[in-house]
Design a protein around this nucleic acid. Structure first.
Lengths: 200, 200, 200, 200
DNA sequence: TTCTAAACGAGACGGTACGTCCTGTCTTACC
DNA sequence: GGTAAGACAGGACGTACCGTCTCGTTTAGAA
């Protein structure tokens, strides 16, 4: 059982991978999105186009990976939500932070780019849910289950629906630019959602 | 020395306009969206490319107009919602119809295309809200105001927020393909939203 | 029997055709031959690559056409050789002119380029013989037949062989750079060939 | 303080050298010539590209070496021409053999490849003359000098010119595919050349 | 027999050019 | 004058090779 081995190019691969993803993010943030081309990424990264195509099958995938890499770098894995015992206060804090994120122009452009790619690519959408949405949702659900145990939410609350009602209005307002994203709005969403599910 | 008069070309314009928009819709529905090119539209419509560029500045605008034309054709202008006196039942009916629309593959692709174009183009997004979202929202708000007057909703309910909580979860679930769109789901959204806003 | 007709774009076509061929010749003359790329030709001509590929299938064909265009421009069609009545003197003049042509660096590079393309492409070689070699050979044969009639050459001389023995040594010496191309050499070829075929 | 010594790897070098040249010849013979790439040679030879570039500076050089290696393998060095005492018969035999060589598809492709490389590379052309043409020419000249001494050729015959007139027509006809290469043709060339130089 | 250094296969890399496709403009002939 | 047709300059696509550059892995002589 000898596993052919062969040379290890992982150092080079990893280095160029980082350069490419960083260049991609820079372009997405700086440029009109349709000027983000594979050729531009390669030029910016000081890399041959083939080095990009060797790893990713399309521009979509590169952009996706570039954004994904951001959250992966975070703290390794687990996201954790505040738990002061006051569910409403904790959720408001989280939602206010989310509002602040969307207000950051760099973040805005990156997430907008990802959503563009996702909209017409079911596979990428699946990966998005798996790698970006799920970890966050899991953390939120964990916090909500704590609240259930503490009697702040009815048992057997539909947590998926709860999260959707809490978060989707914000997402839609942001994507369609259909209204201001303020702390007041964040608070109102928390309050309405808690009312909807009998939380206190 | 004004207006050479001559024949009236507005008929030709209108005819070719319809042909172009129909061809666009056909391509959006049939093809992978990134194969929908101006050239393909022109070929499909049996039209010179210039005839397209004379009317719209970009592919985005054509696609947008193609989808917009669908709802304009409806009954001229005003959309109206059912009003049986039973708010919950009426909303459930509307939401179930919306779920059904999203389940239609043609509708799915068309709306997905529009959302793709909108995500990175603020002007188009504004037009989208103005021409597609607003009329629908206005109709819904009219129905909700009836409910207020009937005492089924508290006065001064934040109707924008009400509509977002009702609709955005459905929209997000559809866009991200993050869950099934069923009648049960439609009903649950109505019930939760009514609870959130003290409706009955 | 209506032959679709449609607009005639031949003026634009002809103009860009000339620009491309001229740019090609310029590059062949100025550059190391393997730097003559379709992209370089397009850039030099101020033309999109597609405008080249619309007309010719490969770089070979463009280069070939560029060289061919030179001799076509000449005087329309017919080449004619001097006929003073003195065969030997006339042939020497012609061969000396040929030697002079090969000494011209521009001509050298152009013909070398064509011979490169021809060597591995039988179709192009056929076109070369047809369009470049044959007209010249026909003119030479016409002059030789005059000589036959004048009794300066035996009747039924194998004119193809005559021309090959006259010309091929010069061609080979040039292609392989295997010796100097001088007027003395030109004269020696004429004299030897005339001896070989009993000319006087 | 000299020559660190160390092991002698010449055996490996020599082995891989042979493998590379053989693979090159195989590709030249089998493939359309522009598919003969360094990468293809390396793959066919089961060798890293660097092993090729360590020895030769370019594809041209490899192809050249591959063809050159064929004639070097022959009988060590000296080529010798038949000498039956009958100059005409001996030359006809040699020319008929040459015609036969050109008729061999493998030989055809190999020599064509070399001539392609040579046409635009003066250095390679010099090496070609030195290593491939000269030995053959020297052998032929030796035979012709025997004929001079035997009174079958005039003294002080220009042997270079003699050889060119004998051989160049054949070469040109082959390179340009401008006529059939037959034994009759070979004989005619010998006869005409002998006439040209007063041979018998 | 072990050590050491070259040559090696593998293949990633930064590049250049390929030949194709589409964009948005321009030109021509037709109606 | 608007139109269908389509040529055009431009530029990105994704692929193929170039020639260079690491990587471990033989390999074979010297120690």
């Amino acid at each position: 059982m000898t596993t052919a081995a062969g040379p290890d190019h992982s150092r080079r691969r990893e280095r160029s991978r980082q350069v490419i993803l960083e260049a991609t993010r820079a372009l997405v943030v700086e440029q009109s999105y349709d000027k983000v081309t594979v050729e531009a990424i390669a030029a910016r990264a000081g890399v041959g186009k083939q080095t990009i195509y060797r790893r990713w099958p399309s521009k979509s995938a590169v952009v996706f990976a570039a954004v994904l890499a951001l959250s992966e770098g975070a703290d390794g894995q687990s996201v954790e939500l505040p738990d002061t015992g006051d569910l409403e206060a904790d959720l408001k804090q989280v939602m206010r932070e989310t509002v602040a994120e969307f207000a950051d122009p760099s973040f805005d452009r990156l997430i907008r780019a990802v959503n563009t790619e996702i909209a017409n690519d079911a596979d990428l959408a699946a990966e998005y849910r798996e790698k970006l949405s799920r970890p966050l949702d899991d953390a939120k659900k964990a916090r909500l289950r704590m609240a259930e145990r503490a009697g702040q939410l009815p048992p057997d609350t539909d947590l998926d629906l709860f999260l959707e009602m809490l978060y989707a209005p914000l997402f839609q307002r942001w994507l369609h630019r259909s209204g201001p994203l303020t702390e007041t709005y964040a608070d109102a969403l928390v309050e309405a959602t808690l009312r909807a599910f009998g939380g206190r």
